[in-house]
Design a protein around this nucleic acid. Structure first.
Lengths: 214, 214
DNA sequence: ACCTGAACACCGTTCAAGT
DNA sequence: ACCTGAACACCGTTCAAGT
């Protein structure tokens, strides 16, 4: 065979296969991908820069699933909230990908554009410029930590039998079950982080409330 | 040689070597450890349950570095804050270990005992029991996400030259440099999350402004 | 440019053999 | 119980050879 008239492989197929494999088995392997693609292992190396190149493909793929339109026609806090939810939803759809992505967060062009828009909105709302990255970084870290939580099993607070922790056990038992533990924790955290941002605004524009005088 | 009169290996040495290797090179390998220990690769398998057993050793090691005495003789919020800082400090000392630990958080006995004590304190302070795990989970996720951030290079918001993001660039430039970006983001988030917890308290105990019913 | 087939170094793990 | 030496399956990566 050697070189076929039409290429057997392209980045899309490679990304698809890697994502499939990670979703199904929790990880991927270059030979495993080659088998699925009906191709030699070496062939894949003609398209990507090794295994880490495939991880970059996955990072970009997740980034593309993040909805970047959430910032238009909304106040900045609602937009930020929607962005956070969309960011996490992209991870939630492929929880096993997240551990492969640690070390560097998603910085796809779409995501970068969203951050640019966010910075602008927060600035205009009155958040001091030197606080903007602090706020966004803490929110991003929270999202990433929450995403990792998604890959963990739901009942993971199993208390070893040789440890006495009655109140912890009671708190675990007292959790309502409808939204998952992870969902509730995410909502709680993202809500308070965004609220905290709005309290840092210097109300030099028109602002209804505030602890000035009443 | 075969079996020496005194064992060459023990869990302490194995954990030490793995930690050394991860701190120096970012990862560890069983044969690499064996070389450092002056021992055959197979010997290590007589002490731990494979590579994942070594990861568990590292998880426990990090857990032991967390200071669990922070909760005594302090109000719950100061204790929780100290615990969070200590938790993160343990990660900060060995940032490359963190990615190996994702999937399951640290649940060493010390940490579990701290959580037990925290739940008790928060309950007594008046936090509704069904909210306790939500609050603690979101804080733990935030800590984990922040810890991962520590393994990332300080200047990681490099904006690709083909992307225009002037306000993002300005926000990055406007950051003060004294405490690191990661430190500031951590402090911001942990402060806000704990404050949010204290607002959820139902002041039915001895409380200055609470409604008087018992 | 793109695929094959074969190769290489290396890793995780097992196991019989020795004390 | 604990270590060795040798083995096995598998992985990531490279490369000459073919079209």
């Amino acid at each position: 065979m050697a070189r076929p008239r039409k290429a057997l492989l392209d980045l899309g197929k490679i990304a698809d296969t890697a994502l499939e494999l990670v979703d199904e088995t929790g990880d991927f392997t270059v030979p495993e991908m080659a088998r699925r693609l009906g191709v030699q292992t070496a062939s894949i190396y003609h398209h990507v820069d090794g295994r880490s190149g495939i991880v970059e493909l996955l990072r970009a793929r997740l980034g593309d699933e993040i909805d970047s339109t959430t910032l238009d026609g909304q106040p900045w806090d609602a937009g930020l909230r929607a962005f956070a939810y969309s960011y996490r939803a992209a991870f939630a759809a492929h929880p096993h990908v997240v551990p492969l992505l640690t070390g560097e967060p998603v910085r796809a062009p779409v995501v970068l554009a969203t951050y640019e828009r966010l910075v602008l909105l927060m600035e205009q709302a009155g958040l001091p410029l030197e606080l903007v990255m602090t706020a966004l970084t803490s929110i991003e870290n929270f999202i990433l930590g929450s995403a990792l939580d998604l890959a963990a099993p739901e009942v993971m607070w199993a208390i070893p039998s040789d440890v006495a922790a009655p109140r912890l056990a009671a708190a675990l038992a007292a959790q309502s079950t409808s939204p998952s533990r992870a969902d509730r924790a995410f909502d709680f955290g993202i809500t308070v982080l965004i609220e905290a941002c709005s309290k840092l605004l210097t109300h030099d524009g028109a602002s209804p409330d505030g602890p000035s005088t009443s």
